[in-house]
Design a protein around this nucleic acid. Structure first.
Length: 433
RNA sequence: GGAGAGAUGGCUGAGUGGCCGAAAGCGCAGGUUUGCUAAACCUGUGAAGGAGUAAUCCUUCCGAGGGUUCGAAUCCCUCUCUCUCCGCCA
């Protein structure tokens, strides 16, 4: 959520930054300003009336104490009208506030000044890469073929259980998935100093709203009900990422400055409805309704937000380096960024069998956009309450990492070599048929 | 799911319609004194939002939301959560 004061005081800047996103949201600015003005006008008026009523009520109390009942009655009459007026004004304030909130909550974050302008993914600048595309003496197979030959994933039976877009990992496939999760968590807790948490995989709507997944993208997530009770729908949702519960851990809290920075990492499965995504490019593991991910979350002082973002990207890159994978880092332009983000780096890993790069990590600084929505603040040593920056990054997504790993390390004989960093977890240096 | 109890400031805990934003204790901060890794005593000490250069002022807050009233921590209704016991369950 944007700071209403910023919209009020630097309207042109806000309008210009919203325009740079190409979402057409700048058209709401005028509406917001007039609602804000109305709200403040009504609030001033009603607060004055309340002050008056409080004063007279105290006087009535004093008169009753002195048994001057007639005087008290006279004052009661006078105050009753004020009360009616307060009720009416309170309603109008609430109405204005609701409308304002409704509009404000649907507005995306402003891109940071360092983010290049652009319309789409075409305009995302390349930042750096690591390693090279591997040479193969044979035509590298797709992970789908590798998985079928090595019996790592049973696509057909997964569909039988849950429909398309779900995976049944089997034998070494399941063990590889588990080894990767363990490897990632160990790396980030031990080497990168994140605190591991294991959150609920089901959350209330306030958490989705807090990170910016609601209300605009509501149709992308799985809603739950107990039994067939329709009244239950809307109370709980499957998480689309561990960001949803973990970023919300300190919602509605005022943290002490010395608690910051907070660094969490968490494994969770991620559930994505992805309505309308079926069709092209959905075969295999690249776009599925459920996948595993290890997520990184930071809550930091605003002045440290962007340094911490760079470090977070480096933490995610380290994963790919240790697994011997070629990747590139790109910066998302203003037109391609997510709703809540002020600046986002994507990490794309090379998948030889696909002949393309796959997004395995997205690291964003959402600045105070989410902390405002959640009411999460920290008290400075000077006693001032401020909104912290909240960062999130994949460290990394598993299904696509699994794909890149198999396709990169596949051998002419059909086996797959396991990189040294992963061997202690999988307890083998090779998977073969 | 059934029965009961409860939710008050950083914590414990009083408060059943009017100087209650809230007693008392603990904690915390400052001070005095004795003098020694501490005690005693005194003073101060809730939060959020807003206006103002500031002193200061206003509004709101006793789990949440409604209601009654001139006035609600206190009375009424609804909801949520916590605890104990029972049932069911990985």
């Amino acid at each position: 959520m944007l700071d209403i004061k910023l919209i009020r005081e630097q309207t042109d800047l806000v309008r210009q930054r919203l325009t740079s996103r190409n979402g057409g949201d700048e058209k709401f600015v005028d509406e917001i300003l007039s609602l804000d003005e109305l709200r403040r006008k009504l609030l001033t008026e009603v607060e004055q009336l309340k002050a008056q009523r409080n004063k007279v009520s105290k006087e009535i109390g004093a008169l009753m104490g002195q048994k001057k009942f007639d005087d008290a009655e006279a004052k009661k009459k006078e105050t009753r009208e004020i009360g009616d007026r307060i009720v009416e004004l309170d309603q109008r304030v609430a109405e204005a506030e609701q409308k304002l909130h409704h509009t404000l909550i649907a507005l995306p974050n402003l891109p940071n000044e360092s983010v290049p302008a652009g319309k789409s993914a075409e305009d995302n600048p390349f930042i750096r890469s690591h390693g090279e595309k591997p040479d193969f003496a044979f035509k590298p197979k797709s992970h789908v073929d590798i998985c079928e030959q090595l019996k790592l994933i049973d696509f057909a039976r997964a569909a039988k259980l849950s429909g398309s877009g779900f995976l049944l990992y089997t034998n070494w496939g399941a063990r590889l998935e588990r080894a990767l999760i363990q490897f990632l968590l160990d790396l980030h807790t031990t080497d990168h100093d994140y605190t591991e948490v294991s959150p609920p995989f089901v959350v209330g709507p306030q958490c989705l709203e807090g990170v910016g997944q609601f209300p605009k993208f509501k149709d992308q997530y799985y809603g739950l009900a107990v039994g067939d009770d329709q009244n239950e729908l809307g109370k709980l949702y499957l998480i689309p990422t561990a960001e949803t519960p973990v970023a919300n851990i300190h919602r509605e809290e005022i943290l002490a400055e010395k608690q910051l920075p907070i660094k969490y990492c968490a494994y969770s499965p991620c559930f994505r409805g992805e309505a309308g995504a079926a069709g092209v490019g959905t075969r295999g593991m690249i776009r599925v309704h459920q996948f595993d991910k290890v997520e990184l979350i930071k809550i930091v002082k605003p002045e440290q937000g962007y340094d911490e973002l760079e470090k977070m990207v480096a933490n995610a890159e380290r994963v790919l380096q240790l697994l011997g994978l070629h990747y590139k880092v790109i910066l998302l332009c203003t037109g391609d960024m997510g709703f809540a983000s002020a600046k986002t780096y994507d990490i794309e890993v090379w998948a030889p069998g696909q002949g393309s790069y796959l997004e395995v990590s997205s690291c964003s600084n959402c600045e105070d956009f989410q902390s405002r929505r959640m009411g999460m603040r920290f008290k400075t040593d000077a006693g001032e309450n401020k909104f912290p920056h909240i960062l999130n990054g994949s460290g990394t997504a598993l299904a696509r990492l699994f794909v890149a790993l198999l396709e990169t390390h596949q051998q002419p004989d059909g086996s797959v070599l396991i990189p040294p960093a992963l061997q202690p977890y999988l307890k083998t240096d090779r998977i073969h048929a």
